[in-house]
Amino acid sequence: MGYGLKVTGVDTAGGDFYVIDSDTSSTESLGIKTGGVYISASNDNRASIAANTAFSNYTSASGNFLFARSDTTGEAWFSDYTTKLAGSFVVGKKHVVSQVGTTTNWTQAVGTANPSRGDVFTVLHVGSGNGEMMLQETTAAQAMKYAVLHPISTITTNVNGSNYGIQIKNAASPSRVILDSRKIDKTIKIHKICDKNAFVGGKWSEMTTAQKAASLVWDGSSQSTVEWKNTYVTILGAFNTADTASVFRMGGFYFDNSNKKIYHLGYLQVTYSGDYTAYPNACTILVGELIQ
């Protein structure tokens, strides 16, 4: 198109980074869908969930980003699905049908032709065995603070005025708003992006000093308390299961609130023998600070 607005930032190393470019056709900024900032102990506006509760407004589809943290020092584990027993009603949730019963006796879902996109359906039949349905929703095993980011074009609520500000559209046809100042009164400042396999992981109680050093995702020791309490990590691709034979956890974190450090955790441990294998992060991790 050749006209419009293009903003390029400069980082501390003198390198450029992309901010916005109206010549693009699909790239758009992110807005805060859920989440608030910590200002003080008596003025804590962060979104919270209790243990074993699904995060609100988050799905792994549709360009969502889920950031979470814990104010409680210790391990934090997450799961990206929950199970539903036969006869359960599942409304407005995306889900996956996993194998249940025997191979000749599969779960059947009623109410949609495509169970991976289920809107409303009933788990009708799960055979004679221990049938279950895996429902795609992300939960935390511990109470968490969190924030959810959505593409700006999908956010409908004005939070920063309604009839003033700046709106930038892209070059798509029809054009799409890729920045709308009315939709943002807070944002996540990205501190760090960590690639897959960047951290060795492990089980906190079993990890050596060297392993912990190699699993340090974020060192916020220079941050203020406010900055630290507004600092989150993404918890994408998490996995947490345990039975009598083994414990298998991936994509977890250890929040050290005393030293303002966040470590990646991931391991498989055989219960009867205690044999233990560390797992690196299988998914990209973002570290961001919610500011307002």
């Binding site: 790239t27 992110l30 943002i184 996540i188 500011i291 307002q292």
Partner: peptide
Amino acid sequence: ILNSDGTTLFGNELRTGNVVKYSTD
């Protein structure tokens, strides 16, 4: 872009993040 507190929410001094493409299905 500043909010009412004067906090920068968007601009060339802030690395926030953009989504380039994502799946819906």
